[in-house]
Amino acid sequence: MAEDEWLSPLFGAEMKTLRDYVTYSQRLKTVLQPHLLSLLAADMTLVLDFPANTPEQRLWLHGLSEQAGCSHTLHFLDTPPEECKARLQIRNASGEHPFAVTDAQFDQIAAHFQRPVEDEGFNIKTYKQ
C-alpha cells in the first residue's frame, strides 16, 4: 500500500506545501490505521510504502506492528542524495507518478531526514545503493 496512491486522489489538489502534505498524510494515517490493524489481525502480510524519514514518521509504523503484535522489517535504502535526485528526475519525467517533486522540494524534505537507528526498535534491513 503506497501513501501517494491514496493522497493524490483524496487531497492532491489541496497539497501545495510541505505543511499541507504533513496535515493530509496524518489524516490518511488516522483513517487507515484501524483497517491496517484489522488486516494484520487477520494474519495478512502488509508492505507499506509510507515515508519513514524521521523518527516521528517511523513511530507510527512501529506502533502498527506493536498494536497488532506482529513482526516487522524496516527496509532502508542507503542512497546518496545525488542519486535520489537523479532517480526523482527520471520518475518526474516518466509522468507515471501522481506527484512531481522539484529539486528544491527534495532538498526541503531531505533536510529533515534522520537515519533509522536500532534504538527505535525496528528490524532494519539496509540496502547500500
Rank of each mutant, 00 (worst) to 15 (best):
W6H: 14
L7Q: 02
L7M: 12
S8Y: 12
P9S: 06
P9N: 03
L10V: 10
M15D: 07
M15Q: 15
T17D: 10
T17Q: 08
L18G: 11
L18A: 15
R19A: 15
Y21D: 02
V22N: 14
T23V: 13
T23K: 05
S25N: 10
Q26G: 12
Q26R: 13
Q26A: 14
R27L: 12
R27N: 12
L28H: 03
L28A: 04
L28R: 08
L28G: 02
K29R: 15
K29G: 09
T30S: 12
T30A: 15
L32R: 11
L32K: 07
L32A: 14
P34N: 12
L36G: 03
L37F: 09
S38N: 10
L40A: 08
A41W: 05
A41Y: 00
A41Q: 11
A41R: 09
D43F: 05
D43I: 06
M44R: 15
T45L: 10
T45N: 12
L46E: 02
L46D: 07
V47M: 08
L48Y: 07
F50R: 04
F50I: 00
A52E: 01
A52G: 12
N53R: 08
N53V: 02
N53E: 07
T54F: 09
P55H: 06
P55F: 01
R58F: 04
L59Y: 10
W60E: 03
L64H: 02
E66F: 01
Q67I: 06
Q67S: 14
G69F: 04
C70M: 08
C70P: 01
H72P: 03
H72W: 10
H75I: 12
H75S: 11
H75N: 09
H75P: 01
D78F: 11
T79E: 05
P80N: 05
P80D: 07
E82R: 06
R87D: 08
R87Y: 06
R87Q: 10
L88N: 08
L88Y: 01
Q89H: 06
Q89T: 00
I90L: 10
I90H: 10
N92C: 03
N92K: 04
N92I: 02
S94W: 05
S94Q: 06
E96T: 15
E96V: 13
P98G: 04
F99W: 10
F99R: 04
T102E: 02
D103H: 01
A104I: 06
Q105N: 11
Q105H: 05
F106M: 03
Q108K: 09
I109L: 04
A111D: 05
H112S: 14
F113V: 09
R115N: 11
P116F: 04
V117K: 12
V117G: 14
V117A: 13
G121R: 01
G121K: 02
I124N: 08
K125E: 13
